[in-house]
Design a protein around this nucleic acid. Structure first.
Ligand code: SF4
Ligand code: SF4
Lengths: 146, 146
DNA sequence: CTATAAGATGCATGTTAAATGCATCTTTAA
DNA sequence: TTAAAGATGCATTTAACATGCATCTTATAG
């Protein structure tokens, strides 16, 4: 029961940008600070850009900034957008994967459970993840100076 | 966000046994009816046996039966027991996977969300998945005669 | 007491999604 | 015109999961 790194990297990126609001941040900087693959992060950033979560400017002195205030960015929304497949069990994706699917109640139960999972994420924004004290600690961990 | 087949196969197996309570059922029969790998299912069954969810008797005329009444078998319990790793994000498993982990609130949020997911499963037993009408339909789908 | 039908177990292999790497293109400001 | 940024497409690697195969153990029928 693991989520994809795409989602986590996306949220890490948005948190980073939120922690450094006001400045423009490059992909290289983020990748270095988190110690993750620059290439992979590029794709995540790209997707976030397409989805409108951040602004990206190319060229010299370019970089990334948040497209909206942290309080406006729902964790649940980011998760839904980034996770490759939201199907908890295969029968949801592939019809005919299981003989029971026409009448299976387990399917419904899993969907309910997933809804509960998402509801928790939906109830929080980027801002909730970064209250002042936590913000300070995270900036320390990331060596962000302000 | 996909669960492992182990969990689903386990639940399918238990449902099958519940639908056929009173009879002894072989692994072969279950694998055939579901159209899944006999080998793989064997391991799932074995694990379920070790965990005490079912009784297994070897030898001729052997087979499987439920160890307790469907109303006593919690879907959540089965899920927790069968899922290889319950960690939603890597930082829970591997310390040092992410620089933020000492202070990250996202981690906590994911744990909360997972708890909500599990709570839904915990709220249901095998019996809830098999009310009379559904039972009839599933027996049809599985060609179980009674 | 032997044949056969069952589950148990360990090891090897296959499959697939995810992650990563690499090369190249495009944009933009100094 | 150059260098620094993001964008894009393709190839490769990795790791978890799933499956296959061979063999062992147990128990019952006959
Ligand atoms: S048992 Fe139910 S939930 Fe599982 S795959 Fe079949 S239809 Fe879907
Ligand atoms: S960002 Fe937070 S939740 Fe994600 S891996 Fe790092 S510590 Fe864990």
């Amino acid at each position: 029961m693991r989520i994809t790194r795409h989602s986590d990297y996306a949220l890490r990126t948005l948190m980073y940008l939120a922690l450094k609001q006001g400045s423009v941040v490059t992909i290289n900087e983020i990748a270095e600070r988190y110690g993750i693959s620059r290439n992979h992060l590029t794709k995540v950033v790209n997707r976030l850009h397409q989805l409108g979560y951040l602004r990206a400017t190319r060229g010299k002195n370019g970089g990334l900034t948040l497209a909206s205030a942290p309080g406006q960015i729902s964790v649940g929304a980011v998760f839904r957008d980034m996770e490759s497949s939201l199907a908890v069990v295969e029968c949801v994706d592939e019809p005919g994967a299981c003989v029971l699917s026409p009448s299976c109640r387990l399917q419904g139960l899993f969907n309910q459970a997933q809804a509960a999972f998402l509801a928790q994420l939906d109830a929080h924004t980027l801002a909730d993840l970064l209250p002042p004290e936590t913000g300070r600690q995270l900036r320390d961990l990331l060596a962000i100076e302000r």
